[in-house]
Design a protein around this nucleic acid. Structure first.
Length: 470
DNA sequence: TGCGGATTGAT
DNA sequence: TCAATCCGC
């Protein structure tokens, strides 16, 4: 009998439980990817993320063809049409079973539940796997039996699971299927933005990961905070599309400590904690449905009078705030569809705590621009910055953009790369150039759009009021 | 994964 | 005068 493997955010051959199980249990295997254009629009999928998805789908199709598995593309508008579409495909192909790896945001969970119910009703089996996370939502609980609301205890429990369960050995695809020779290129409709600088087949991405974990991860703890060095792994878009899986990463790290997941050097340990953050926010979103409806985790913060000023917001998006480090980050985002993570924190903090603009505006804009936009991580990050989240930064912790700039970009290299008007400004003035520029009569670069000191004080006093009323 | 003002103590 | 430290926000 034939099985259908439904690919979603798991565009990989290796470490793919759904694919491996389908191939182990069935002679014939057909892969399917479903395009749901309107649903993606509602989810604010960025044009550059779409473009990368298209490229990665073509790589996936090639890799699957090598293994003798054809990839079918189904296209419709919304998730709600998928039960009927997938049933029709299964029937047409004479398939009796569907295999897929779970996704955890609310719409995706509902989508899968509906598909499961509809297919079962028509006599098909559905097999679901948790291949995109090391620890699945609900698997770790506090002593009270609830989900973790703080990262640190979550991380400890998460490490304990890795320690106890170990990391599964790599699998190879079972069965011999004749190679498929004729593949046609896959094209997605809709607006796209060039992602060529990022794309790479699964094995290229895997090589990048393995080189990073061999050669660069030891410097990660300190160099990741220097945007000019760009010493992060730059793999985030591939995590989001599932081109790499956490098991692959964990297995590569395993060789670095006999006591894995303990006993790692601080670089790899810090990097592993970032994997845990990724899972923490996915678990959180699965446990707390209101996060998917644009609501704050801390309910009392909903009373904060966030501003909804279009023109100030636009200045932020365009990188014309007059704060060089903020503008550099926002311009990198516009041009590259990506921003260094340290700078993401600075620009998010600035939008919320200096401009007092609704964090949801920032969250949405990031999704619309980022090549690595992940609903859970992005929401978690914004609520962390805005102090509305669980285990968020305390409301009174307000970054001083000028001081942050001096700390993370001491010689102004990152600023000069992205803010061309400031290319010639000496280091002494690069972080707060308005006086220097005024003295020289240069007006290309905007004046600071807020007085940081006042904005900070107003944010803290208003937020403090809410907290006291709680 | 602060900041900024106040205090302290060495010079 | 200034760096180190403390503490409330």
């Amino acid at each position: 009998m034939t099985a259908v493997v439904w690919f979603r955010q798991d565009l990989r051959i290796a470490d793919n439980d759904a694919l491996h199980q389908a191939c182990a249990n069935h002679e014939q295997v057909v892969a399917v990817f479903t395009i749901t254009e309107k649903q993606w629009q509602e989810h604010d999928w960025a044009p550059i993320k779409r473009d990368l998805l298209q490229r990665q789908l073509n790589y996936l199709q090639q890799d699957l063809a090598e293994k003798g598995v054809p990839l079918v593309i189904l296209s419709c508008d919304y998730f709600r049409q998928l039960p009927a579409e997938l049933l029709q495909l299964c029937q047409k192909r004479g398939a009796a079973a569907l295999y897929a790896n779970r996704d955890y945001p609310l719409h995706e969970v509902r989508r899968d539940r509906a598909v499961n119910a509809w297919l079962q009703r028509h006599g098909m089996e559905c097999h679901w796997f948790d291949s995109n996370l090391l620890v699945k939502p609900g698997q770790v609980k506090t002593l009270n039996g609830t989900y973790y609301k703080k990262f640190t205890p979550f991380f400890k429990a998460w490490l304990k699971v890795l320690d106890a369960d170990g990391i599964d050995a790599p699998q190879s695809l079972a069965g011999q299927r004749p190679k498929i020779n004729n593949v046609h290129s896959i094209e997605l409709a809709g607006e796209k933005k060039n992602s060529a600088a990022w794309a790479g087949s699964e094995h290229v991405v895997r090589d990048r990961l393995s080189r990073f974990l061999r050669e660069e991860v030891n410097q990660y703890k300190t160099s990741r905070d220097v945007p000019a060095l760009d010493a992060t792994s730059r793999l985030s878009p591939f995590w989001e599309l599932g081109v790499i899986a956490p098991r692959a990463a964990a297995r590569l790290l395993q060789s670095q400590s006999p006591d894995f997941p303990y006993g790692l050097n601080e670089g790899p340990h810090t990097w592993l904690s970032e994997l845990a953050w990724r899972e923490f926010y996915q678990h959180l979103m699965w446990h707390v449905p209101k996060l998917s409806y644009g609501q704050a985790f801390q309910e009392y913060t909903e009373a904060y009078p966030w501003r909804h000023d279009q023109s100030d917001f636009k200045r932020w998006t365009e990188g014309r705030t007059g704060f060089p480090i903020v503008d550099a980050g926002m311009r990198q985002l516009l041009q590259e569809g990506w921003m260094h993570n340290r700078v993401r924190m600075i620009v998010a903090n600035f939008l919320c705590k200096d401009l007092h603009i609704d964090w949801r505006w920032g969250e949405r804009y990031f999704m619309q621009q980022l090549i690595d936009g992940s609903f859970a991580a992005n929401n978690g990050g914004w609520q962390w910055s805005a102090s509305t989240g669980t285990d968020a930064v305390p409301y009174f912790r307000v970054f001083n953009p000028t001081r942050q700039s001096q700390q993370v970009d001491p010689d102004g290299q990152y600023i000069r790369k992205w803010v061309k008007e400031l290319e010639q400004v000496p280091v002494k003035h690069i972080h707060a150039p308005s006086e220097y520029l005024r003295a020289r009569g240069e007006t290309d670069y905007p004046l600071p759009m807020v007085e940081h000191k006042d904005a900070r004080e107003r944010f803290i006093s208003t937020f403090k009021g809410l907290k006291n009323e709680k």
